[in-house]
Design a protein around this nucleic acid. Sequence first.
RNA 1: GUGGGCGUGGUCGAGGGGUUAAGACGCCAGGUUGUGGCCCUGGAGAUCGAGGGUUCAAUUCCCUCCGCUCACCCCA
Length: 418
Amino acid sequence: MYQAPRGTYDVLPSQQPFWRYVESSLSNSAQSFGYSRIDTPIFEDTNVFLRSVGLETDIIGKEMYTFQDRGGQDLSLRPEGTAAVCRAYIEHGMQNSTLPVRLFYYAPMFRYDRPQAGRYRQLQQFGVEAIGDSDPALDLEVIELAMSSLQTLGLKNLRLVINSIGDTVDRPSYIKALKKYLEPHYESLGKDDQKRLEVNPLRILDSKDEKATKIAEAAPKSTDFLGSDAKQHWESLLKLLDFAGINYEIDHKLVRGLDYYTRTVFEIQPLDQGAQSTICAGGRYDGLVETLGGTPTPAIGWAAGVDRMILNLLKEEAGEVPLPSPPITMAYSGESPKMQSISIARLLRNADHTVTLAPQRSLRSQLRYAASLGSKYVVIIGEKEFSEETVTLRDMDAGNQTSMTLEELLPALSKAKK
RNA sequence: GUGGGCGUGGUCGAGGGGUUAAGACGCCAGGUUGUGGCCCUGGAGAUCGAGGGUUCAAUUCCCUCCGCUCACCCCA
């Protein structure tokens, strides 16, 4: 028997209201901040990701779905959204539009890793990008948008964690200092972290290894190595957050897994959870547009995992999700009445009603069918109604029914709908 | 890639080395030859994840594989 590929899932009809609610709620939040939706292709030239995300990252190293098409082009299913949005920004000359450009997306991403709770190979992400302004007020804006959109969704007890990792020019001196601090501890580090000391010492800071965590506590802080511009940016952002009344925790161990981040980085997590908890993460990426071949352009954005949001929403039983209204069922007995039911169904649908035709079984069974769908109304046409040119409209909740002419049916239903 | 847990009808789930593998939900039909929900009766639906081994006998014990799941690595 065929199954959905590992790490993918079907969103069944019963779950659809939930997903649609999340999509529209998030979209509305973004729109209320003046963001516009952008859709980019599901796959891109592989280099778009290679050059932006960073060759040393795991995403590039082992998690991309990369393939050649029949023309020999190197393509990859997108592992994240920011690089593709920047590619579109450059390609369509958005630097000539009014800046900053405010964009959001709701789209599937693909990563080849082992699935576990809240982590899939095809994952749905919602994200925003604000491109073309270095003002810390823009940092505040996207962070505020992140917090408020998650809260509007119904997620509670959110924790905002924030840090600044400085500009590209600040980083070498910080990394140097960090290495210098860590090297004496080399023997006490786990194997993975020993390797990281060479490849990417920043990542030791958010290692899950207990020894590493302890050592990291006293490590040099990236915020102490900021250049004057980045330092000023960082300090004004903190002031702005205070001003906006947004609670945050500075976490000097917060670093990002992607190479393109600069200055501000942040995560949002539900308070009460551990390892798999981050539902939103982002930061500034002032060098990315240039890296991809555009003019130097500051930008900031974040992405949130919709799968994890839904997981958390289900846990918190938050938010009333609007359900689609059940259909009116057409029930009948006999061939001519059936034909007439089909015609009347069309009539009702044209008048904006939702209508289904009961399967051709006993009337009793057709009513069971209607009840199991949750139909409030059943339009019954038997031989008697057919010859009299009437219909019987049954109110399933009330348990009563009235006979009426065809002309009376539509007004009766429209009235009932209100 | 590594480690733990699990795999019995559509779903949940009991069982246990011995010719017909419980039960519940759901589905279909009938009880009411033109009327749902409750109730009653009946029915369909399972090569007990796959392959191999032990045994007179395996769904049950053993091994391998596959799948699901959780965690690690890593990560929005």
